[in-house]
Write a protein that binds this DNA or RNA. Structure first.
Lengths: 139, 139
DNA sequence: GCTTGACTTAGACAAAGTCCATTGTAGGAT
DNA sequence: ATCCTACAATGGACTTTGTCTAAGTCAAGC
């Protein structure tokens, strides 16, 4: 995590208390917080931080490639700090829990030229859906 | 399309002018309209139709499995009438154009048990991203 | 320890979607 | 053909998520 802060400083990022708190909140594995959740946790450490700053900072982290934007449902975007290891997502239809997953193979190679409509295809995003053990037991 | 209306009537759907217009607007291939676009086109045929009715009707069509909800960007949901042939989507990062595509293989089989975290995985959604010919030429 | 331009703030604003009380009507019953 | 009634439509208020702006604040270089 301090790696991240160092890297950002090296790129000319001005280090402020607000930015540090947002970066710290996003630390960890299988972390997929919404902007408002990030804000709520940031407020615990820095009560006067504003929503706009959280949105701005998240946007910057995404632009810098340090955080990924994920939208698994049609609600709020989620922010995934695991940006340096490519992965996809597995989402529980019941409770919304999200896990990072690593399928085998390369889905990009599975799209035949005839199905590309002349597009330059550069990226693919895979979302698996199902029920987590808890929600499956409750159903 | 009249197939669709027949099928819905058979399931006890009360047929109204509003529902008919919404279903008609959604007819075709590679159709991926937002709720507001559906509303705009419905208004051309039935000026007094309300936004709430369009939302309600789209929601019902989705519940009945006749239409798919697609969220390729973080903007509005899009509605895809091509619900009976499984497919994925190819989206232009420039202009937002969407095409239905059919990759080879079955991505569901590509998720090892060890990567399922005990989930019952039932569905997978694949979104390819790139540039359409027009946007690639403009870039 | 100044200065300055980048950063933060609060609140207004916007887009997408939901909710609800009221009004209207499709389709079966008579 | 007309009547009834449960289901559907309406419009407007409300919510959620996110963006924008003008004014104030502060990190970092000198």
């Amino acid at each position: 995590m301090s790696d991240l802060l160092e890297r950002l400083r090296g790129r000319g990022w001005r280090m402020t208390a607000q930015r540090r708190v947002v970066a710290e909140v996003l630390d960890g594995d299988h972390v997929h917080l919404t902007a408002d959740e990030v804000h709520a946790r940031a407020v615990e450490r820095l009560p006067e931080i504003s929503r706009a700053t959280v949105y701005n900072t998240l946007g910057e982290l995404v632009s810098l490639g340090e955080v990924l934007e994920v939208s698994t449902d049609r609600r709020a975007k989620r922010y995934d700090p695991n940006a340096h290891r490519p992965h996809h997502h597995l989402v529980c239809a019941g409770c919304g829990a999200i896990r990072d997953v690593h399928p085998i193979g390369n889905p990009l190679a599975d799209l035949p030229a005839a199905e590309r409509f002349g597009f330059t295809v550069s990226d693919v995003e895979v979302t698996y859906r199902g029920l987590c053990p808890e929600c499956a037991a409750a159903a």
